[in-house]
């Protein structure tokens, strides 16, 4: 160990635990992920570019990002309302609702996939009503958005909820005593404080939605250029033994995910800064 690398402590086991952590991390995560980049470097820039700008790839990226964005927006609105209601109001069954918020994370994605497909298919419980309205539920971008909304809900609720709980009651009372009406207090005092947390949650939901596979492939329809998401395109390329193509599309997705992750971390940092200030 270099001097100054670690702060002195009488606790033992630093080298052992850190050594094992880095060894296992490298073995399972870092080296395998590095293989992806090594593989793509054998592709050559021109070939890489031609794969990720092919019509089918661009259509898949567009669909994945578009539906992920739409579902993140839906969750931003309804996720905040669910979080608000869970923190501020009391109603029968509240504890069950609170526990079930994590249901989409606990439920295997394939089960979510077939269930939502069954619900939103033209003859399904919800699909038949959508049919009357002229909306195609399953096998359309609408269906993909539904599945991604299901998957993303806990991310928004679980990042906004603790911030609402930690909110100092005094700032609301101060706003009210200074003559602000309730709507002004919510809009001008509460919303700005929870906004970074909301952005963090939405970004996490968005990032998860882009890579999501199991819950989407059943409801998507999987028509090339129309309802084929990016992860499915990787799968298709793999089944055709086009490893180079699959790798190129995967690199494109990964780079965007990493940018999103950095953004989420930045919003998280803003949240803690805000909470420290008020």
């Amino acid at each position: 160990m270099k001097p100054g690398f670690v702060k002195k402590s009488i606790l033992p086991g630093f080298s052992l635990s850190l050594g094992f952590t880095i060894f296992y991390l490298s073995l399972i995560v870092l080296i395998p992920l590095a293989m992806l980049f090594i593989k793509s470097s054998s592709l050559g820039m021109a070939q890489f570019w031609s794969v990720i700008t092919a019509d089918r790839t661009l259509a898949a990226y567009r669909l994945s990002f578009g539906t992920a964005f739409a579902s993140a927006c839906v969750n931003a609105v309804f996720g905040s309302i669910v979080a608000w209601v869970l923190v501020r109001y009391s109603f029968p069954g509240k504890r069950i609702v609170d526990a079930l918020v994590d249901f989409p994370l606990a439920l295997p994605t394939a089960v979510a996939g077939i269930t939502l497909t069954e619900l939103y298919a033209p003859t399904g419980w919800i699909g038949q009503f959508l049919n009357v309205l002229g909306i195609k539920g399953a096998f359309s971008p609408f269906g993909i958005t539904v599945a991604l909304t299901f998957i993303g809900l806990p991310f928004v609720v679980r990042t906004v909820q603790p911030v609402l709980e930690d909110l100092d009651p005094q700032i609301e009372e101060a706003a009210a005593s200074l003559g602000a009406d309730r709507w002004q207090t919510v809009r001008l005092v509460i919303l700005p404080v929870i906004f970074p947390a909301l952005l963090t949650g939405v970004t996490l939901a968005f990032a998860r939605a882009i890579g999501e596979y199991g819950s989407v492939i059943f409801i998507a329809g999987n028509m090339p250029l129309k309802t084929e998401i990016a992860p499915l395109l990787i799968m298709t390329k793999l089944e055709q033994y086009d490893y180079a193509g699959a790798t190129a599309i995967a690199i494109g997705m990964l780079l965007i995910s990493f940018v999103l992750l950095a953004a989420a971390n930045y919003f998280q940092w803003l949240t803690s800064k805000n909470l420290g200030k008020v």
Partner: peptide
């Protein structure tokens, strides 16, 4: 933050 499909892909590679 890695898509499950990509997680599978890296081990195939």
């Amino acid at each position: 933050s890695v898509s499950p499909v990509i997680a599978g892909l890296i081990f195939v590679l």
